[in-house]
């Protein structure tokens, strides 16, 4: 079962990791796994979106370990999963044949701009605008110095 990380590397499979269902309660998860190095969240089908909110809630609750999305996910979900706090994705062998690594990487790159931020390395469009306005203000204020 191939594992891809958010930097776009195939990872070696090293044993089993702890996994939780996508309907798990945050309090239970944090009680048990608050300090886990890595936690897997199961996506039973690709269109069940609970895992995204679960990851987001875990990050808000202070979970700092790695999060792995496990299930029949597609490359087009890669960028959004990372934005919600996932570090890795585990897919099936069949999928990795039909949707090889190149498609995962391409999908991640193609959605560069986003209105939201949510833990990803890129900033949101709202934040870009704020930066631009702040930079313009700085320019103007510099010009106004005697």
């Amino acid at each position: 079962m191939p594992i891809i990380d958010k930097e776009g590397n195939f990872l070696a499979v090293v044993g089993n990791i702890e996994t939780i269902s996508n309907s798990a309660a945050i309090s239970d998860v944090m009680a048990q796994f608050a300090n886990a190095e890595i936690l897997g969240i199961i996506f039973p089908v690709h269109h069940d979106g609970r895992g995204y909110s679960l990851a987001k809630k875990l990050r808000c609750a202070g979970f700092n370990g790695k999060l792995r999305a496990i299930g029949p996910l597609i490359p087009d979900q890669f960028s959004d999963l990372i934005a919600c706090g996932f570090d890795e994705i585990e897919i099936s062998d069949e999928q990795s044949l039909r949707q090889p690594l190149a498609q995962w990487l391409a999908a991640k790159e193609i959605s560069q701009h986003s209105f939201q931020n949510n833990n990803s390395s890129k900033i949101s469009i709202f934040q870009s605008r704020r930066q631009k306005i702040a930079a313009n203000r700085q320019l103007t204020s510099v010009r106004e110095l005697p």
Partner: peptide, 14 residues
């Protein structure tokens, strides 16, 4: 509209 457009968390709602 801007906030909800391609919101990564909410593209697979019930």
């Amino acid at each position: 509209r801007q906030w909800s457009t391609e919101h990564p968390e909410f593209l697979y709602l019930p």
